[in-house]
Amino acid sequence: MPIRFKINDVAVEAKPGEGLLDVARRNGFSIPSLCHLESVPAIGACRICLVEVRRGRRSKLTTSCNYEVLDGIEVSTDSPEIRRHRAMNLELLLARAPSSEAIRKLAAQYGVSQPRFGPIKYNPLPNCILCELCVRACTELGHHALTTVGRGDRKRIGLPFNKPADTCVGCGACASVCPTHCIPMTDTLTKRAIWGQKHDFVRCSECGAPVITKKHRDHAIATKGLPEDYYDVCQSCKQIATSQRFAAIVW
């Protein structure tokens, strides 16, 4: 039985257990958000995806990412009140991540350009907004190489047991999902440095460019069932090879 409800007076359908933000996006409603991906569990950290949900006579503000849809609810994705609280939360986040382009842009949409708060005192990973996307992505991929440490004003992103995890494969997903791109990751021709360790690259058998870290390749071979030589050649060389083979057919 599909769940039926309304977003901004438009009737929509969803499967039981779906998150409101996911359903809204699928139906073309745009709700700003900084800490949600459909593929990781929602935790409602950034508090930007606020909406108003009316259920019977009662109506309340809630974050949409971690709200499981219910029959008959009426959702509005915008109101002066919603905007006011989104703006304040963005101001808080901008003060935490002043050099993040993404946050600056979103904050500007809500009329926030210069936060009234100074630099945050405890922030060992500058510009991190503690959205935990990195931790959740890494966990979802099965690597469990990141964790949160502490709570309250001392909360931070860190390594389990405070040392680089053996299970980190250097895939860089954490750096990719980070909305503020604040996770330091540096690649050379031979190595990727991330989270306090260096991972050896598999090098392209044609041109020597880095393809994927050896550990990530090994993990992929073990879990994804593609043969080893899928990971030998870099993307550009594969594309050139493809073009040559096309040419050979045509001419």
Partner: peptide, 18 residues
Amino acid sequence: NRCVGCGLCETACPFGHM
């Protein structure tokens, strides 16, 4: 809305498209 940017797809595509 689902991708976590692990990069595996790029490595896997045999035609160098991704």
